[in-house]
């Protein structure tokens, strides 16, 4: 499991993450929600050691992340930041192969090749595997990066706005893939997400942040109610139940 204790991060005088303590359950999808600047991405970044927190500690599998060897931690936990543009001439397969770096340090073994193939197939990219990234559409590129994370085969996967820049069809595709990962491979997925309905439809738990503080953390059913959502976003919500899922209408 992922456990953070009193995590704080400040830039200059501005406190971005304020004393966050949270225990994220294993094998589930947890969505981090909140308005712009609430500190979601920063929190995610500190868990993934991309950003150094000013205070607090982060425990993964009962062990502080600072006690991990970089290479070993990269076999436990992976992060994908918002759509990143690469200027490199890389094929999909080459990119996905990088996911195996923590295991093989660049010299791919049989197992690695198998995992790479699997990951590419998992994201439906087999036909494109020899195409250069720059030839792909935004959605395909995003899937290629996700395939790299899948190939990395870590128990914990952190995603920062994985649906950014994707149209509805691709968004649904990605979310289904993630659900699949969590159910079939027992992966723990934590993601920052802006679309409340995607969060509600696909995640098991929701953590809400506001002004750097964690203000709610509960199962999805308990978070998606008008009172709590209003507290998080300061606008009114109407909750519609359909197919045993909760849909939010906040458009009026």
């Amino acid at each position: 499991m992922i456990k953070t204790t009193n995590i704080s991060k400040q830039y200059g005088d501005k406190i971005v993450v304020d004393n966050v303590t949270i225990e994220i359950p294993k094998g589930k999808i947890t969505s981090l929600i909140g308005s712009n600047g609430a500190g979601k991405s920063t929190l995610l970044g500190t868990i993934a050691r991309i950003i150094n927190a000013n205070h607090g500690e982060i425990i993964i599998n009962e062990k502080n992340i600072t006690d991990y060897k970089n290479r070993i931690l990269a076999q436990e936990l992976s992060i994908l930041k918002q759509m990143n543009h690469l200027d490199l001439k890389l094929t999909v397969k080459e990119l996905v192969s990088f996911g195996r770096f923590p295991y093989s340090q660049g010299r791919l073994t049989e197992v690695d090749h198998l995992k790479i193939k699997e990951a590419i197939a998992f994201l439906n990219l087999t036909e494109l595997e020899n195409n250069y990234l720059e030839e792909l559409s935004g959605g395909q590129q995003q899937r290629a990066f996700l395939a790299m994370v899948v190939a990395q085969d870590t128990d914990y996967i952190l995603l920062d706005e994985p649906l950014n820049n994707l149209d509805m069809r691709h968004s649904v595709q990605i979310m289904k893939t993630l659900k699949d990962l969590s159910v079939t491979k027992n992966k723990t997925i934590v993601m920052v997400i802006h679309d409340i309905n995607f969060a509600s439809y696909y995640s098991d738990y929701i953590a809400a942040m506001k002004q750097g503080k964690l203000i709610h953390f509960n199962t999805t059913k308990n978070i998606i109610n008008p009172k709590i959502l209003k507290e998080i976003y300061d606008i009114d919500f109407e909750i519609i139940e359909s197919n045993n899922k909760l849909i939010c209408n906040y458009y009026n």
């Binding site: 993934a48 991309i50 990269a74 770096f101 923590p102 340090q105 990395q152």
Partner: peptide, 20 residues
């Protein structure tokens, strides 16, 4: 040199892939 290959993906990817 292999670490350089990973670093060319960018800082965040490099850290994610376990590079110091």
């Amino acid at each position: 040199f292999k670490y350089l290959d990973v670093i060319s993906l960018g800082k965040e990817h490099a850290i994610n892939l376990g590079i110091n």
